[in-house]
Design a protein around this nucleic acid. Structure first.
Lengths: 224, 224
DNA sequence: CCATCAAGTAACTGTTTAGTTACCGGCTTG
DNA sequence: CAAGCCGGTAACTAAACAGTTACTTGATGG
């Protein structure tokens, strides 16, 4: 049941700095957070079960309440971490280093692929919006994370306008929302869409076609 | 507590065809369905409460189980009705009656405005996708509803291609997904988006700008 | 005008759930 | 080396929940 088979019996001593295979607060905390991410993503806030999270994390409820207070605070932590994850990866892109057109194309590709690789992020967004951002509103640390994104995007668009490749009406928020819309809807609604249209949207051929489509649409909407 | 103040006491007889203010199976059924639509839309499948639905409908659980079997069947009924609603309104558009460009523009406008006026539909889609279309998959009657939409859209695109106004690669499913994406994401994620970007996306000025944006993007992506 | 049946009520039941409490055991520190 | 503290366990509790049952009311047809 424990990680490694070694040391099934008790162990009298260890160096202070080292990990003891049991009783590892950091690991327990991280395991709870990861298990909670999956549970909330799969079942929503109403459907998620605290017992299930504890079990998935290989611990119990006592620890969960000890580290995170209650179900709602744990949920908010999960949500915050999810946002930090995407925005951190996004910053590493440095979309300003390329030509304006390439920069926007890169952002569109990155966003699509991040959504594809992190379905739990999309799911958490859906859940939070169902509840009208009730928990996200309480979070202070998130706004600054996003003003940076809009600022960077705004710079790229300005350069493109000066170079005459982008239309004057191109708006940074609109461009970002366009990219996010096309990726989010396709993936988060893939199950109902595949059902009603009778095509499996998650097939690689369809995914690749949609990836190209997103870049095409985004650029077509702002190019002069 | 009853509808109209008149006839607080009991009333001995009525014409057979007429409504008796109590004991109206059709109305009770409809009231439950409407109450369930709101409850499921607001709280999701996991968060919706059967007691709450009964109370909202002005009846009780006994009737709910009598007419709909159980919570899951009621939910499926709600979902099916929601789909029938949008597809019925959509058919009335007859997008083939106009020029190809106008037809696509009309479909984009219609879709956006329908989403705007029926937030419960978006919410139900989100909930159903959270559960990977678990209930929708069981529904038979829905596929035919959607093949019609794609067929009509396909005709319009073909005409546009022949007239030389649309690019040859324009695909009906992609066009519909583009329109739906842009409307769905903006509205269903408005709460988190408004929070993180510090702008109230539901303000009329922003709504109108996004409406124009959807039409612009859709057409820009398929025009030659 | 009485028997019947459908519409409707309300209290109940077994189960599930978030959150708590009482307890255990080994490491660290004085 | 003793004390207590921290990471961890498991059983418990009160409330909420989906679904059921026993009952009431009133319209209809013979």
């Amino acid at each position: 049941m424990n990680d490694s088979g070694e040391n099934a019996g008790k162990r009298p001593r260890r160096l202070s700095q080292e990990r003891t295979s049991q009783r590892d607060p950091e690991r327990t905390r991280a395991a709870i957070l990861e298990a909670a991410t999956r549970e909330f993503a799969e079942n929503g806030m109403g459907g998620a079960r605290v017992d299930a999270i504890a079990e998935r994390a290989g611990t119990n409820k006592r620890m969960l309440y000890h580290y995170f207070g209650d179900k709602e605070q744990l949920y908010l932590k999960v949500l915050e971490e999810a946002y930090v994850g995407i925005r951190t990866a996004e910053r590493a892109l440095h979309i300003g280093d390329r030509s304006p057109e390439e920069g926007i194309g890169e952002l569109a590709l990155f966003t699509w692929r991040y959504f594809l690789q992190h379905p739990e992020f999309l799911s958490l967004l859906g859940t939070e919006n169902l509840h009208r951002a009730r928990w996200l509103r309480q979070s202070i640390r998130l706004k600054e994370l996003h003003s940076h994104l809009i600022g960077e995007l705004s710079d790229v668009l300005e350069r493109g306008k000066k170079q005459g490749v982008f239309i004057e009406t191109a708006d940074p928020l609109h461009v970002y929302l366009t990219i996010a819309s096309l990726g989010y809807f396709y993936l988060s609604n893939q199950y109902t869409l595949s059902t009603i249209f009778g095509r499996d949207l998650i097939e690689p051929a369809h995914l690749n076609a949609w990836e190209r489509h997103i870049v095409h649409v985004t650029l077509a909407s702002i190019k002069r």
